[in-house]
Amino acid sequence: MQLLGHLATIVIDGVSYAAWLFIISVGLTLVFGVLRILNIAHGGMYAVGAYLAAYAIGAAAANGFGAGAQLLFAATLAVACGAGLGILIEWTVLRRLYRYPEVLVLFATYAVFLIFEDATKLLWGGQSRYANAPRDALGQIRLGELIYPVYDLAMVLVAILLAVAVSLTLSSTRIGRCVTAVVFDREMSASMGINVNRIMTGTFLVGAALGTLAGALTAPKIAISSGIGVDVIVLAFAVTVIGGLGSIGGAMAGAVIVGMARAVTAHLFPQIELFAVYAAMAVVLAVRPQGLFARPEARKI
């Protein structure tokens, strides 16, 4: 019975961590699928979102708004700024580089990330910031033997909603199907009359907004400080790559694998928790060299 309880705890922790992983990587996955670039600036967007949320939640709380309004305000501000920054980056940087090798774009996004790192520091200072008010206000709930913050469990719901929303948009709207077509074959889509450039701009905008949103949703859980974006990049990469790059289902599977790997090691083998994520990534790639949900590609002779 105790063993079962322990197991349940591990699963709950794993799922809740997986939900967070999915939220931070869904934007990256989308951008990779359409633009074929690993967007390192995603970590920067995450950090910006977290700082914006801290500001928004603080401002809303100071004006007497409740937890719901605080979160809404934070999310809105983060999404709006994320979309704006996304457009800005796409127009000024990425658009000029699409004809060059992908690795060049990768480093352009790395440069953007470095700029964001210091920009957030210069704007908000070196010390940590907090946005824990809404998380505290939502209270705790008992699951089995342990209590969990409602906010953390709500993140699982948010992750599922996000996954459903993105999948539905991709599969059942006109624009979503255009995006799917571009993911599958850029040139063919262009010749079918899809405005590939606009799709790419739009996707990057949405990806950036999802990045800031992820930061905003995480803000109430953490200390928002200099350098929080670095770890997020590698984690999001791991999730995206394990899933096979560019598919929402893959990202979900990747998030669950990495989440469970971390929960299991944190509980049972804390000494190796440090590299659980990389071990999971190496093992999955060793077994499935193209990730879990890879599309077969035509061989060009």
């Binding site: 591990i10 809740s16 961590y17 342990l146 350098g227 929960a263 944190a266 509980h267």
Partner: peptide
């Protein structure tokens, strides 16, 4: 810099 300690706290 992990920042998130859900599993450890559990």
């Amino acid at each position: 810099g992990a920042g998130e300690y859900g599993a450890e706290i559990s």
